[in-house]
Write a protein that binds this DNA or RNA. Sequence first.
DNA 1: CTGACTAAGTAACACGTGTTACCTGCGAGC
DNA 2: GCTCGCAGGTAACACGTGTTACTTAGTCAG
Lengths: 342, 342
Amino acid sequence: MPSSKRSTSQDVADLAGVSRTTVSFVLNRLEGVNISESTRERVWEAARKLNYHPNASGRKLASGKSNTLGLVLCQSPEQVFADAFLPRVIVGVEQAAMQDSFHVLLKPVAPDDMTGYARLIRENHVDGIILSGPRQDDVEIIRLHKEGVPIMLMGQLPESEIGFVDVNAIEGAEIAVEHLLETGHQRIGMITNAPLSYTSAQQRRLGYLQALEKRNIAPDLALIKEGNYTPASGYHAMKELLYESPRPSALFIASDVVAAGAMLAAKRAGLRIPQDLAFVGFDDIPMAEFMDPPLSTVRLPAYDLGWAASDRLIRLMRGEGLDQGGVFLESQLVIRESSLAA
Amino acid sequence: MPSSKRSTSQDVADLAGVSRTTVSFVLNRLEGVNISESTRERVWEAARKLNYHPNASGRKLASGKSNTLGLVLCQSPEQVFADAFLPRVIVGVEQAAMQDSFHVLLKPVAPDDMTGYARLIRENHVDGIILSGPRQDDVEIIRLHKEGVPIMLMGQLPESEIGFVDVNAIEGAEIAVEHLLETGHQRIGMITNAPLSYTSAQQRRLGYLQALEKRNIAPDLALIKEGNYTPASGYHAMKELLYESPRPSALFIASDVVAAGAMLAAKRAGLRIPQDLAFVGFDDIPMAEFMDPPLSTVRLPAYDLGWAASDRLIRLMRGEGLDQGGVFLESQLVIRESSLAA
DNA sequence: CTGACTAAGTAACACGTGTTACCTGCGAGC
DNA sequence: GCTCGCAGGTAACACGTGTTACTTAGTCAG
């Protein structure tokens, strides 16, 4: 142990017999500066010997860059709890960030403190923000964007210029419902993944409606119930749906987690899946394949979504003028037993 | 908009007609310094007017504190994917941190890059670390601890002095198995949540063995299969177990996610749950209550676990000499249909 | 021999804050 | 009148780095 205190670039400079400037040049691999090979090696050697690690705070202050991005989750704690989708997104964000030597600061914000995340950026903790699940009534985000803060949305915000990454949820929902139509179902109900104030809920509902419209089926709004991310909400929504008459013969449920609750309620009511009631979910969480019966669903590229958001945000921060606007990732129908033809 | 550039404490000082020192004193609410009430108000007013937010980097550099803690996840990406337990932990960590104005930096580390997280601390990105799921073969963590880095483990590391927060997994597993014994089962199998190199897997297995021992039942090691966090691993482990003869009449599965796969395999084999085969899981993920049948399980206080880890780490960093050693949170048996007496 | 040019390296400033040691004026005690 | 103490404040240093502008010695063409 060379010293008990943490060593600085000055220590390295002293040991190598050069100036601090030179140390900075060498260690940051700056090109275009003339430093002899022998000096470079002396510096590296000294740094290694002193176990030198540059202080991030000093670096951030001098460079103005924090090399950190904020991942802001706009969901209530209860919603995060039940979100089996989240871990994959996080890993995707993290790995793309790591590739560019970025760190990830996590910030869940409660709906009642929606401006909380602005401090992250105003106090320069992060260089940019990924906003997952933006709310329509979020005004802060627009203000930040106007100030020139790099922002990437995961999910969309209608009528906004902010760049985003999203799954093609409308289309995803549409193909899910089309699949049900093709297997002969006419009366198809829906349970949303979340309250309709969330864009993602709106979109999936829209896809459902579009699929019906294409077949000239008038939607029965009584067959659309609202979920809120939890299996319990699916359970209750299903019980309500069972009162509808005539009963739907198939359900599109815009979240696998919610679908788990709904399927249980259906089975409890004595219905067989898929013979009496077919199910298609949304998300393809790891457990979907092992539900009883295995749940047909729309696979969202969760990892890719996180990865793309992270990657695009970093490019944006670097000023690489990527075509603003959004990027859509393809979702994919996965057919399992819960929707097999009767 | 007063200015296009971000304002500094100097700007505030100028506008308020005082020195930068005074601004710092006032805004940080320093006690014991004599600043007149009128001056204080002028400073606050100026700060408000300029929309001043102190620069975190400057602050960190000057104070030496980053007010950030690192949450390090020692799981492979695949394991994180299937971890339905994680979101609750994260929210717990986050909320406790927020209470003390701390930020949370997330850092998943792959098993092949186990020292990656050390840079977080060596470069002063974070003041301390929460290490979730410590590996026995992790030597870096011991080195850091010896250097005086504040560390809090989520989960235990045998023969280590590092403070930790953990659920009483041994006891939790024990009561789960006891419950099965009490309902008349004699031949009880087990599927672990993860490979045995993970401490958590070891502990749950130990609890299982202890429960059997207390009843003088010799364990049959052939009835212990290994899972790896995923429902698929549970499915395959279950299929292996079905070959054992005589077949167990009950199973303790050390992870609800893994249990989902196992239950499906059992049902596919024509077994009724719980009549032919009883199940008890572990974790109480949100979906457990809505599996078919609803899964008896051991409820882990995931949120509390995250909260406690965060809270204790922060106290540790503040030098509040909390009794080192560990804290155990109580787990609790939740009985549902999957283990009701036949 | 001189001037221009280059390789190799450095002094000095900037970044924005926290904090210590000091200064000033004023009222009070003797 | 003189000192002491205190309320109210500030100058100046420290934190550790990135970066620009500059210096110095050496080389080479003319």
